[in-house]
Design a protein around this nucleic acid. Structure first.
Lengths: 104, 104
DNA sequence: CCGCATCCTAGACGATACTG
DNA sequence: CAGTATCGTCTAGGATGCGG
């Protein structure tokens, strides 16, 4: 478990509970994506936050980052099995948001 | 839907994606709780954040706040139906954290 | 018992400009 | 095309103490 907290729920939130992480992961559920393509799926994200978030996710072992040594540069992102295991949560979050809108 | 964003997932995260909100909601799944009791379920939370978070949740219609006009003061919190509808998500987050710990 | 007010810090987030 | 660097803002969050 983690250091400061012994609650599984909190532990999960510490991993994916930021503004952009769930969104990035969600889009990768459909399959691996080039950096530019992934970023364009979320037009509102700044370049900085994209890179930073993606690096965090890689560090935590939720996504992979593959660099192709070609010109122009090519980088692809994909889910690890650990990242893939979040699918249920991500789809629940998406679905709930959808449902909730209809009722408000 | 919300203003700045047209993504359901993001919409949900905006509602419950803070440090303490999911935790508070999770504990209320078991039933209504007095303020002090609820707060003691999360020893690490500061008094300020407890009040602030609970007010946010009330404002968003996820929990109810009932004041009993007695001395000493008594306040109870409980889930609204909208809050209750988050149960699936909350339990998923908890369950995932539990599973993930075992594998790491 | 419950909550409010205040002061404070860390870091999340954004805009812009620049490199291989 | 992909990522870095820098600078700036804003808010989440914490510590402490007061008041009904």
């Amino acid at each position: 478990m983690n250091k400061e907290n012994n609650c599984p729920l909190h532990y999960t939130m510490n991993l994916i509970g930021t503004k952009w992480k769930p969104l990035l992961l969600f889009h990768l559920l459909e399959g691996d994506l080039r950096s530019g393509v992934l970023q364009k799926k979320i037009p509102e994200i700044s370049n900085k936050m994209f890179t930073q978030t993606v690096r965090d996710l890689e560090k935590d072992g939720l996504i992979t980052r593959t660099i192709f040594p070609v010109v122009p540069p090519k980088v692809e992102y994909g889910l690890t099995s650990r990242g893939q295991s979040l699918e249920g949560i991500l789809r629940s979050l998406d679905k709930w948001g959808l449902e909730d809108c209809k009722n408000s």
